[in-house]
Design a protein around this nucleic acid. Structure first.
Ligand SMILES: [Mn+2]
Ligand SMILES: [Mn+2]
Ligand SMILES: [Zn+2]
Ligand SMILES: [Zn+2]
Lengths: 147, 147
DNA sequence: ACAAATAGTGCAACTTGGTTGCAAGTGAAA
DNA sequence: TTTCACTTGCAACCAAGTTGCACTATTTGT
């Protein structure tokens, strides 16, 4: 089974029609270890070959269907990443967001990691009256590529 | 000593000239328990009385000088909050970011809290080779106002 | 108190990242 | 193979934030 077949099946599993752009976008995201911006993905696909609006819509669709997720960067851009098997994803009701993001200070890339946030307790005086439902963690540092 | 005098002194302590707009902006931010957007601040100041560009520049200045900080929202906007005395802030080299944000699912407001992130350990297999320098925490749930 | 130097303000134009409307094209079920 | 809903591409649009520039206000030194 080639990777297109695999991707087609994945798309169908999420109730999405199989189209060239979706297959290609999925492929690009699958191959990347880090979350990617619209611009980066477009770049990989060949900017002339994909309309920017179509790519935005493709990414929005992936997010809406729970196949991918968005990460907002500090400079107000969005990065997209596929939920991988080894990561908690939207189908796990319980651990929907038990998922950390590592931001490399040097190359600015963002990596996704599964993480056990239940270890984290943030009960101090000032939090009285706040009901905490989810804990989202963002780590900053240097990625292995940047040594 | 009235609040204008207090704010003037604060501005001077951060090497900023004391101007009407800075005093007013500082006042609005100081009175708010939650981080505020440019639009919200502008609203409070009376949109006709403050130029939008000037307000952006004022906020950027506050951030640059370490008097305030920015929080990026999920829908790629920026919210601004003053560093309060009871919170770790940029002058504490050691705990610069030992600071959590609580996002209310209901009213979407964002609150700042001091937090001890040293308790949090995220060492799992997949993080091999990643050097973690800072831990940023974002909590989601319901704020006391939204019961 | 005054003037010069320096920094802040307001307005118009611009940029970036993303969305909307609509006509034409395509995938998949029957 | 036909059908119909869904997807695509293009142009126009939008919202948040920035830049350039002439003008004005705050400081500092006298
Ligand atoms: Mn992620
Ligand atoms: Mn904060
Ligand atoms: Zn890196
Ligand atoms: Zn609330």
């Amino acid at each position: 089974m080639n990777s297109d077949d695999y991707h087609s099946e994945l798309l169908r599993a999420y109730n999405l029609k199989v189209t060239r752009i979706r297959l290609q976008t999925l492929d690009v995201l699958m191959r990347s270890r880090t979350a990617m911006s619209h611009a980066q993905i477009s770049q990989k696909l060949g900017p002339k070959d994909v309309d920017k609006v179509t790519l935005y819509r493709t990414l929005n669709t992936f997010v809406d269907k729970g196949l991918a997720h968005r990460v907002a960067t500090e400079d107000r851009n969005w990065l997209y990443a596929i939920y991988r098997n080894d990561q908690a994803h939207s189908h796990d009701q319980e651990h929907e967001h038990d998922h950390a993001h590592f931001v490399c200070d040097s190359c600015e890339k963002i990596y996704c990691f599964p993480v056990d946030s239940s270890a984290l307790t943030v009960n101090n005086e000032s939090m009285m009256g706040f009901e905490i439902k989810e804990k989202e963690i963002r780590l900053h540092g240097r990625c292995p590529v940047c040594h």
